[in-house]
Amino acid sequence: MDIKETLFALSNCDSVGNISNSADLCYALLSQYMPVKRLNNQSFVGFLKGDSDYTLMLDAHIDQIAMIVTDVDDKGFLTVQKSGGIDIRTLPARRVTVHGKEDITAVFCSTPPHLSSGEQKYEDISKIKLDTLLGNKAKEIISVGDYVTFQETAEELYGDKLCGRSFDNRAGAVTLLKVSEYLKDKALPFNVAFLFSDMEELGLRGAKTSTFNINPDEAIVIDVSFGNGIGINPEESGVLGKGGMIGISPSLNRLISKKLINLAKENKIPYQIEALGENTGTNADAISVIANGVKTCTLSIPLRNMHTDSEIISVSDIENISKILIEYILSGGVMND
């Protein structure tokens, strides 16, 4: 499986609410390697059987940030609300896709120069209207409740850097696919569940119900974390290309963190440590407290420009996370610790 090609394919289509193209594609790709079953909403899980009843669950969320139409006016302008964390300052003159009766391109209004009053405040997304260019025909195609998604197409930057929309968390989904491709015929010490969960961006919702259904003994969440950049605190970010970020936090299981670090060291796989004083902001926060509780850790892909249509990752980080996960699974995780 080619990481770049797969990520581009998953990034260039969407999965949110009633739009499931990316999740469907991911489902089909995972089904090549193992039996897959659908769970609540768009979540689904694939299982590889191992030599014990113990189950390790790997999670990557398959949903994305988006917007949702709350009004269509007679001139063809839409009012939208956020579905997930959107930086509304970045919307003016940005093109998006409105998933109406057909997919249409629309552009957010920018303030005309003669009406701009110097220091503008960006507090309310409903004040930034979305121009469909359809005039009074907009109402025939677009309804309240339709989803609006970014539309940048993924592309290569210099070296092994890739840029595109919804890399949060299609990059995680690709990592799981890479691991499942490698493990599909291997003898495993325990069961491995590959969960692709829905509605992370709305508050870790899909992981809650799916984890309850799967009932794992331990879990590792593969998501993205902040990549380095100008003005971004190095303590709050990972450097692109320096390996996956192994989470250590009061809410995470220390044994898993330690074992991931040791395996990375032993096998000379690049890694970084992401030490957090609080919860992780990922599905790990939800998964760890499901049912009787689940030993949980995070392994994160450094990503720049999070929650924009031009998120940037390094392919090598996905490769290196896949390698650590494979070593971890084949060595039995923390099943016997």
């Binding site: 003016p92 701009s116 940048e152 840029c163 003005g231 929650h307 924009t308 249509d309």
Partner: peptide
């Protein structure tokens, strides 16, 4: 307008791709 630049794709010298970058919302 700076708002229309943030996190936009750019093309340098007609061929090199880049992204105008900054701090993420989080």
């Amino acid at each position: 307008d700076t708002a229309t630049l943030m996190f936009k794709k750019v093309r340098i010298n007609g061929e090199i791709s880049g992204v105008i970058s900054g701090k993420p919302i989080h």
